[in-house]
């Protein structure tokens, strides 16, 4: 299953709820959630720990728009919108954690 998160982990518990609930699979960070995939942020260790269970992707246009394209954490796979579409195709279902 593809889990999509769109909120910064520094202001919302959405990412934490997703990580502690979902059984694993693919995790895509979009919109303000892309900050979770940057080096040195306070939630970085939680995302790193989640990589045991999840393949973590970040929507690169959203990261670049926020001036954080150079700060992407190791182990995260950047995707563009076409890659986003591919993730929804390769997973049988998807959930946007709003």
């Amino acid at each position: 299953m593809l889990h999509i998160v769109n909120k910064s982990p520094l202001t919302s518990n959405t990412l934490d709820s997703c990580l502690s609930t979902a059984a694993g699979g693919d995790l895509l960070l979009i919109e303000d959630a892309v900050y979770a995939a940057t080096r040195g942020n306070a939630a970085e260790s939680r995302l790193k720990a989640a990589m045991e269970k999840f393949r973590v992707y970040v929507l690169m246009p959203d990261l670049a728009a926020r001036g954080m394209g150079e700060r992407m954490s190791d182990g995260v796979t950047p995707v563009d919108y076409a890659g986003f579409v591919d993730l929804t195709v390769s997973n049988k279902s998807c959930q946007s954690w709003l």
Partner: peptide
Amino acid sequence: HQASDSAYLFAKAAIAQ
């Protein structure tokens, strides 16, 4: 909110594929 922009860009990419 960015939601409508994200949805549009997703739709466009899906159609392009």
